[in-house]
Design a protein around this nucleic acid. Structure first.
Length: 188
DNA sequence: GCCAACGTTGGC
DNA sequence: GCCAACGTTGGC
C-alpha cells in the first residue's frame, strides 16, 4: 500500500530533528487537539512519511524527514498528574489520547523555511500555508512532500529574491479582510 | 444548541 | 511581546 504523507510540527527548543536523530523513535505525545488526534489515530499508517516541521523558532520550516513507526500508541502523559498534558477526564480503560511512534529518517541538507514554501507556487495549496492554520498534525500530498525534499537538496534562493519577498510581504494587505466584523476585545 | 469568554498557537 | 485565528468550555 502506498504510504500517506504528513506534516508534523514541533518546537525545536523542546524537541527538534536533532533530538529525534538522537533517540531514533519517539512517541508523539502531548497533542491535545481532536483533529490532530484523529489524523494520528484513524488515518496514519505504519510507514507513512512525515515532514518534520520546526515551529515557534527562527526561521520556522521543514527540518527533516520521519516515518510513522507504530500506530495506536497510548499517550501516557494523559495519565500523569505532573504532566502539562495531564487530562483528568481520561480513563485508563478508555484512553482519550492516542498517538503514533515517529521514527527518524533524515535531517534535510538544509532547512526549507516557511518563507520559501510560501514562495513556491507549486505549494500554494499546502495547509500549513493557510492563514490561521495551527493544526500540528496535517496531511500533505505526495507531490508537495517530494517538492519540499527536492527544495532541500538544492541551494536556497538568492538573498536578492528573499529581499524581494520581504518587500512584497511588507506591502501585503492587512490580515483581516476589509469589512469583516472585528471581534470584541475580551475583558481581562 | 447557541454563543461569549477564554486559552492557546504560532508567525511576526 | 503582540495579536489574529480558532478550539473548547460552560451558562443559558
Amino acid at each position: 500500500m502506498a504510504p500517506g504523507y504528513w506534516l508534523m510540527k514541533t518546537e525545536p527548543d523542546t524537541f527538534g530533528i536533532h533530538d529525534l536523530a538522537r533517540v531514533g523513535t519517539e512517541p508523539w505525545t502531548g497533542v491535545r487537539n481532536y483533529t490532530a488526534r484523529n489524523f494520528m489515530r484513524d488515518e496514519m499508517k505504519e510507514g507513512d512519511l512525515v515532514l518534520f516541521y520546526h515551529s515557534s523558532c527562527e526561521p520556522p520550516g521543514v527540518a527533516g524527514l520521519a516515518r510513522v513507526a507504530r500506530t495506536g500508541v497510548v499517550d501516557e502523559t494523559q495519565f500523569e498528574p505532573s504532566s502539562p498534558y495531564h487530562d483528568p477526564g481520561a480513563k485508563r480503560e478508555e484512553p482519550r489520547w492516542i498517538c503514533v511512534d515517529v521514527a527518524y529518517v533524515e535531517t534535510l541538507p538544509r532547512l526549507v523555511a516557511l518563507d520559501e514554501l510560501r514562495g513556491n507556487p507549486a505549494l500554494a495549496d499546502m495547509l500549513v500555508l493557510r492563514r490561521g492554520m495551527r493544526l500540528s498534525v496535517q496531511p500533505v500530498t505526495a507531490a508537495d512532500y517530494r517538492t519540499i525534499v527536492a527544495m532541500a537538496k538544492k541551494p536556497p534562493r538568492s538573498s536578492a529574491s528573499a529581499r524581494t519577498e520581504r518587500t512584497a510581504k511588507a506591502s501585503r494587505p492587512a490580515r483581516r479582510p476589509p469589512g469583516r466584523a472585528v471581534r470584541t476585545k475580551r475583558a481581562r
